[in-house]
Design a protein around this nucleic acid. Structure first.
Length: 561
RNA sequence: UGGCCCAUGGUGUAACGGUAGCACAGCAGAUUUUGGUUCUGUUAGUCAGGGUUCGAAUCCUUGUGGGCCAACCA
């Protein structure tokens, strides 16, 4: 019964875990039952991930259970497409719901409870217009006044509600209201709506109902039916708690309790479903799963791992303070994860041709061994072809290098990783004066692993054999917004970053990468972590850059400006 | 101008009346055939005033700042 608290160790508890452990200790509850209750009106985002990790994590930690419950009480906004994506996103994150349930499973029960409330004289049918009702509610400083329907008898209300249910009235003709307290300082208690009329097709119940319960009338009772012990939601529901408790008390049902935590905000992005939907509908992004989107599906396509997102959720913590998390923390979690697991590969984004003038002409090739992952000896080694003509990164050559630049420049030397040291002897330019080719010599004794040259060079760069390299499309991403808090602006779209997507149609990659399957993740040495996109086709893979490597040189360059 | 929630380094988050700690970011150095990783060191904080107390980030109070609340949305 009083479960041992697995956390009794070192990790500090968040405030919800403290409440749970107190409830377990005092015997108020013998176990933990939570739920994740999304409305299926959009795709899940990183903010939901925090809630998912919290709710499912709590259940795991205390040997309890967690349901997925769709809050599908508004048929005009909800769709099966969203229902499906939500379940798959939850699973992808690594959680399996104990039960998959719907608020609509309980429509009949909720209806009966409403009848009970009417019978008890605690609810009434109101035919006033929305404007009249709003006016009669008063304001936070002015008490409300009753409409003329407030004192209709229970018998009459019962009949009226029955007519509502059977479709006698058109949409918006009347509503069912709870009779609570028109003078409450909490506006939610000023006779809230329980039911509204919507002759709309519901994605699950079809045309069975034309009255639909409001959030407040549904949520607490659904929790109660499922015997949710700890109903965790975000801060903006604090004022609803009094109502949540009132309904449960009037009905005398299982006393679920609501606890509120601060939702997750990330800088340089927006998080509301409404705004995300707008980005999709107005084609500012390519879809809900655009790799720039903070949606779970976007992050997945970008190359984020479930592990990294769970770690992120753990690191941001749970508290009641409003927060804006630095997206850098999310990126850190991905790098930390991928550094240990992602195989290294060579890719050259913007190729610059290099001819090794003292290397044999013709088809001469050497297969040089290189590590798949220096962090993981188990990952083994692979062989790379080395030949007379190579590609290196344009960024790895500068004609007039700034101080501390230790890549290649005229007369300078650099090591080709896992291969030879080369020296730049001359450049070839086009008629605009741009360097389009390098002539270099290589030092035969400097071969990796058997270097007897005695040379010390500071720079080590990646490279590709021109004869063996394969083409690939690469997509680089930058933050979607230029402002830290775009939602704070009058028009959040004004701060959209016009350079959030950079397409590189003609990158080159090492031969093995041609067969990359969508979802495969790699570190392109010195460039960052990349993930093969579903747009990949045979012979022409497409890679998304998930995140760059930390770049000390970029920082140094910034300093010099 | 009603009620409610919140306030700890740049960003998050601990400290439960008794030494303000951890992580990310930053800075400096060491190692490095990825300007990555790893390691070491380091900068930086209790919103303000009053009170209670031997002792306050913590309790009380006032103020300030931020957020939420009056959709037939959730």
């Amino acid at each position: 019964m009083n479960a041992e608290t697995p956390s009794s160790g070192n990790e500090p508890l968040n405030f919800i875990e403290e409440i749970i452990e107190e409830d377990l200790r005092t015997g108020r509850h013998s176990g933990v039952q939570t739920r994740f209750p999304p409305e299926p009106n959009g795709y899940l985002h990183i903010g939901h991930a925090k809630s998912i990790c919290l709710n499912f994590g709590l259940a795991q930690k205390y040997n309890g259970k967690c349901n997925l419950r769709y809050d599908d009480t508004n048929p005009t906004k909800e769709e099966q497409e969203y229902v499906d994506s939500i379940l798959s996103d939850v699973r992808w994150l690594g959680f399996e719901p104990d039960q998959v349930l719907y608020a609509s499973d309980y429509f009949q029960q909720l209806y009966e409870w409403a009848v009970q409330l009417i019978r008890d004289g605690k609810a009434y049918v109101d035919f006033s217009t929305p404007e009249e009702i709003a006016a009669a509610k008063g304001s936070p400083t002015v008490p409300g006044t009753p409409t003329k329907y407030r004192d209709t008898s229970p018998e009459e209300n019962l009949a009226l509600f029955e007519r509502m249910k059977s479709g006698d009235f058109p949409d918006g003709h009347c509503v069912l209201r709870a009779k609570i307290d028109l003078a409450s300082p909490n506006m939610h208690l000023r006779d809230p709506y329980l039911y509204r009329i919507k002759h709309a097709h519901h994605h699950r119940t079809g045309d069975d109902w034309c009255i639909y319960p409001m959030y407040d009338w549904a949520h607490g009772q659904c929790d109660s039916i499922e015997r949710i012990t700890h109903s965790v939601c975000t801060l903006e529901f604090i004022p609803h708690r009094a109502l949540y408790d009132w309904f449960i008390e009037q009905l005398g049902i299982f006393p679920s309790k609501q606890y509120e935590f601060a939702r997750l905000n990330l800088n340089y992005t927006v998080m509301s479903k409404r705004k995300l939907l707008q980005l999709v509908q107005e084609n500012h992004v390519r879809g809900w799963d655009d790799p720039r989107m903070p949606t779970i599906s976007g992050l997945r396509r970008r190359g984020y791992t479930p592990e990294s997102i769970r770690e992120f959720a753990k690191r941001v913590g749970v508290a009641k303070r409003e927060n804006i998390i630095d997206v850098g923390l999310l990126e850190f979690c991905l790098r930390e994860d991928l550094n240990k697991r992602a195989p290294r590969r060579f890719a050259v984004l913007r190729p610059l041709k290099v001819v090794i003038t003292n290397y044999p002409e013709g088809n001469a090739v050497e297969w040089l061994e290189t590590e798949n992952n220096p962090e993981d000896p188990e990952a083994g080694k692979r062989k790379l072809p080395f030949s007379r003509e190579l590609y290196i990164e344009q960024d790895d050559f500068m004609e007039n290098p700034p101080p501390k630049y230790f890549r290649l420049s005229p007369g300078g030397m650099v090591r080709l990783k896992s291969a030879y040291i080369i020296k730049c002897t001359s450049t070839v330019k086009d008629n605009h004066g741009r360097v389009i080719e390098l002539h270099c010599t290589y030092i035969p004794e400097s071969r990796s692993g058997q270097d007897t040259s005695g040379l010390k060079v500071q720079g080590v760069i990646h490279w590709l054999s021109a004869a063996y390299a394969k083409p690939a499309e690469v997509r680089l991403y930058d933050r979607l917004f230029q402002l830290e808090d775009p939602a704070a602006e009058e028009d959040f779209k004004k701060s959209l970053n016009p350079h959030s997507l950079e397409l590189i149609p003609e990158a080159m990659v090492e031969p093995a990468l041609a067969e990359a399957q969508p979802g495969d993740r790699f570190q392109f040495t010195r460039l960052g972590y990349f993930c093969a996109d579903p747009d990949s086709v045979a012979g022409k893979p497409v890679f998304n850059r998930s995140v760059t490597l930390k770049d000390a040189w970029a920082k140094e360059v910034k300093k010099q400006i």
